[in-house]
Amino acid sequence: MYAFILRRLLCLVPLLLAISFLAFCLTAASPSDPAEVALRVNDITPTPEVIEKTRQELGLDRPFFERYLAWLGKALQGDLGTSFVTHRPVARELARALPSTLALACVATLVVLGVGIPCAIVCFVREGRLADILVRALIFLGAATPTFWAGLLFIWLFAVHLNLLPTGGLEGASSFILPACTLALPSLATYTRLLRAGMLATGQQDFVLYARAQGRSPLAILLQIVRNSLQSTLAALGMTLPKLLAGTFVVECIFAWPGLGRLCVTAIFNRDLPVIQAYVVLMGLFFVLFNLFMEVAGALVDPRLSGRGSAGRKGKGRPDKSRPDTSMEDRA
C-alpha cells in the first residue's frame, strides 16, 4: 500500500508542474499589461515611465521562462507574490480565506454523503415503488434548481419567514446550514442517482444471489451491496470535493461568506493577477490531491486495486493454487 501511495505521489510532481506552468501562461497571455493593471488599481496614472519602472519592479522585463522559474522557486518556499490591490502577500490572503471555504465545502460534502447515501439506499430497497419515485423526483427538482435561486429560497424561508437561521455571514455553527445545503444540492442529486444505479447493478451480481441462497440476513446483504457500490462514488467524490471548493463563488456571494470564491472574484474584477494565478494553482493542487486521496481510499476498500492479500504481497498473480490446497486424490 505504501509503495502504491508513493508511486502515485511521484506521478503528481510533473502534473503539478504542468498546472503551475499553465496557470503562469494564462496570466501571461492576459491582454492587459500587468504593470499597467497594478498601477490602475492603485489609482496611479500609467505614464510610460511609471509603467517601465513598475515592469522592472515586478520583474516583467525579464524573459518568460526566467520569470516562471523565479515564480516557481518562490512558490515552493510559500511565497506566491504580492497582491496588486492590498499589497499583502498572496499566500497570506489565501490562508485567510481558505479555512472558511474549506469548512463550508467539508460540511457540504457531509450533507451530500449523509443525505445522498440514505436516499440511494431507500431508492434501491424500494425500487420502482412510491418511495423510490418520490425521492428521485425531489432529487431531480433539487438538481434542476439553480444554486442562486435555491439559496435565495432558503434565505426567504428559513431566515426571513421562519427566522430560524442567519441570512449570511460566518457567525457560529448555525450559519453553515443554509450555505452548505445550497452548495450540496446539485451534488446530492448526482450521488444519489450514481449510488442507486451502482447498487442496482451490484444487486444482480452472483455473490448477492449466493448470499441470499445461503440465507444471509437482508441487512448483511445490503451492507455488502453498499460497500461494493461505493467505488464509483469514491471516484466521483475525488472530483466533487475540489469542485465544491472552487464552486463556492455563488454561494459565498449570496450568503456573504468570507471565503476563497469571493476573494477570487474580487481579484478577477480588479485584475489582481498574482491572486488569480495562485488561486488557479491552489485549485489544481486540490483537484490532484483529492483525486489521489480518493484513489487511495478506493484501494483501501478494494483489495484487487492495491494488490493486497497474501498472493498480492508475494507479487504473484492469481490464482495461487499451491499452498492452501491438499490434493483430493489422496482422499478418494
Partner: peptide
C-alpha cells in the same frame, strides 16, 4: 475446509487469490 481438501490459510485469502476449483470447494 479440511474436509474438502483445503487448508485453513484459505480463510485469509481474498476471492481473487484462489482458483475456480478452490472456490467451488469453499462453497
Amino acid at each position: 475446509l479440511a474436509r474438502v481438501g483445503l487448508e485453513a490459510q484459505v480463510l485469509d485469502r481474498y476471492p481473487h487469490e484462489l482458483s475456480g476449483g478452490q472456490m467451488q470447494r469453499c462453497m
